[in-house]
Design a protein around this nucleic acid. Sequence first.
RNA 1: GCGGGGGUAGCCAAGCGGCUAAAGGCGAACGCCUCAAGAGCGUUUCUCGCAGGAGUUCAGGGGUUCGAUUCCCUUCCCCCGCACCA
Length: 928
Amino acid sequence: MDNDSLQAEEEAVRSAWGTAFQVDPAPGAERYYLTVAYPYPSGAMHVGHGRTYLVPDVVARFWRMRGRRVLYPMAFHVTGAPVIGISKRIANRDPAAIRLYRDLYRVPPDVLERFVDPVEIVRHFSDEYERVMRMAGLSIDWRRRFTTVDPHYSRFIEWQVGRLREKGFVVRGAHPVRYCPLCDNPVGDHDLLEGDRAEVIRFVLVMFRWGETLVPTATLRPETVYGVTNLWVNPEVTYVRAEVDGKAWLVSREAAEKLSLQDHEVRVLEEVPGSSLVDQVVSHPLSGDVPVLPASFVDPDMATGIVMSVPAHAPFDYIALRDLQQEGRYTGIVPKPLITVEGWGECPAKEAVERAKVANQHDARMDALTQEVYGAEFAKGRLHARLGGLPVREARDAIGDLLIAEHGSAVMYEFDTRPVVCRCSSRVYVKILHDQWFLTYSDPAWKELVKEYLSGVSLVPPEVRAEFERTIDWLKDWAATRRVGLGTRLPWDPTWLVEPLSDSTIYMAYYTIAHRIRELDPALLTPAAFDYLFLGIEGEELEGREALAPLREEFLYWYPYDYRFSAKDLISNHLTFQLFHHAAIFPPGLQPRGMVVFGMGLLNGAKMSSSKGNVFLLEDALAEFGADTVRMFLMGSAEPWQDFDWRNELVASTRRQIERFETTVLDSLRGGGPPSPIDDWLLSRLQRHVARTTRALESFQTRQALQEAFFGIEADLRWYVRRQPAGSAGGAGALQELCSAWVRLLAPFIPFTCERLWEALGQDGLVSFAPWPLADPERGRPELELGEELLSRTLEDVESILKLLPITPKAVEIALAPDWKWDVFRTIAASEDRTTAVRAVMQDEGMRRRGKEAADAARQVTTLIHRLPPALVDGLLRLDLDEPAVFAGAREFLEQELGLPVRVVGAEESDNLKAGMALPFKPAITVE
RNA sequence: GCGGGGGUAGCCAAGCGGCUAAAGGCGAACGCCUCAAGAGCGUUUCUCGCAGGAGUUCAGGGGUUCGAUUCCCUUCCCCCGCACCA
């Protein structure tokens, strides 16, 4: 079929579907509610997105055919900041942005003009998403579509955050963020030109006293304060004396600027050259008096620009000291060890440096040595007994807290890697934001509750459970408000917006009423209204209960949802967040029931990424290959949780497979004749495929399901046709029955083709709502299946012999094993221990009389049984396979296949030597 | 670095103690069918073999077992997440 008529056919099917996937509750009818993470529509969909929404569609279609009322809704997540940046870049005529949107996403020029308004971007792409999703045949109830900035939805978010606050899960606090002074805004990863992996780390400032001036040294290891022998300053650097919160501090010029962003009042008083600090003496209650020494490794742009020196435990400090001492200076200073580490001597830093034969402080290996020593001390180190003997792991925080509480220490934040640069090319600093609102995911009781619920959630694939559990443990408080972006304002503090991940945690509940709540006046949607809608609370403040009652009812019909689908990168945030929020807000009976986690998409082996241009738009794929081909490829190339790789040449062959299926079905309908003897075999096999396809789809294995439903049935049909006398296509009845089931089994995957075929089969209505085939155990004919298995194995054997023989064959004799060998077979197959089975056989009087012949047969049969699939052996044990009858019925078939006369005889009637080798299920073959 | 998941024939991928030289698909080769095919059908696709068989394989190394692709340990390599961001 050419692409134009394919499009036309698809359009016809789409219009036949019409509004069929809109679904309302039907009391008494079982429901199936699945949701998928809604998209952030800031660009066009690519095939990777395609799979994310197709998997739930296939599952939805499957359960629909099994008679459930299936709700598959969709909405658009438009809150957040990215789209703001995009519109700015477009307004600024940023060439990369323009190229992406104009050329890759093919936004028409007039629409692109409007993208200077961020709302226009999400509006445009929401519509595009819906259009392309419809093209792909997604069976979504579009009446329920909404965006996260709709006024009704905002009321819902207000209720939600209010509810969480009442429960004590929302608190106010300060929070260090990456901050661009030029943009005057916090910056996220996507706003950065450089340093997107940089983490904010927390230093403790140990305050040394130098006369009236405080000298703060920044450390990650406050416990080592007891081992300080000196400070380091860089003599090349200009330091400043500054008034910080009313006290005089001495820090690098850079540090002064940083501190001013971190909650300190900073006023620079005067410059102090680093060189003038050298040899000064400073003191700290926990370290005593120590001198200030020069070191070139000290970076003025790292924290305060002044470092405390612990040569016993810090390789840098040790080597810098040694360098000086080798010049004959400061020879009086000796390292002061304070930590013991198993496997290391008294001064691990010294040991590490000497073992590595480091020449001086400029050695490139210093970072690695530092890591090694720090790692060992953190993992296994203990403070000396005189200092309390705590493990380093615990002492670090304890002493840090002590310093802050009693010795005037402060905290300073700094990036672990630099530089960090904003897209506007300004440098990025750490700034402490105040009045930030947090969700207290660190709350142990909340974590416990979530874990308890998680244990009842079905997870697909099960391996992800560990990741969820770890995420729950690891989550800290989450800054849940933002200053910029689209979103809902915090009801009690409207200067803040609700953060975009926080506003999308329980919206699955909102879908259930999204189409009806729109009819209501937003003013009616008070917290009391939502308390009633979702929690059934009928408080005094509740108004308009009558209008809300049907919504409450619908919510209860659908909720809790059955499965949530999402890519696996959301485990560590969204998927776990939504568990927290459900746990906090909904009663036990309305908690999530299951989640399916997807793998990622690759394009020709490389990661799909819009920014890198390595994407294939879903719309283009649909236009080029047709919706069914795209669907079948995406469902069949890997299971949902595995990564998949889109390769055009593989997709093209999928299209041929669908065409083959269609022709096969149409041909069988036309060509069917009178019943044929192996109709029953075909239908018996069909039961198996139905059962297996069903089981696969019940556990979301789309690939496995396709293997059974498509390739499994196709292979049977090929054998079936082969088994027909020349010119016959097979029994019309059997083919009709097979095709009817086949079309239905494939309908969730390739619904467009199947709707057409369903009609061609003369069936009424839509296949999308046709009953899913039921496997009928009564139709199973294991003895026929064994017989065909025997034939095909024998045929293969004959063919492989023919191939090897150099002679021109004239005839084939097939000699069947005598009954007594079947007795041997049964004895051995039934025995527990097959190694002793030979002996068991020989215990029989009749066998003993046969002597060596019987013993040989027993050995051969043992080998054979090992090689056959256990299920087959079981079958042979349970059923009496009438080998002579099987071959008698298939002689003509064999002759036709082999092009040779075939003689079937009992082994004992044969003159051929080979005949003696005949075994049960493995006839002896003699080619003449 | 920390946490999670993987490495199977030319490619994708199933298998997860004896069915296994290893399903299925793709690709490739040959044959048939055809006026001709990129369509369909059949055969082959680790090595060897004039009888349905034999030999070496499932990232590398070690171990458990009568027996390991499948279980344990270890090394190497790849992917995902690590937060204020969708």
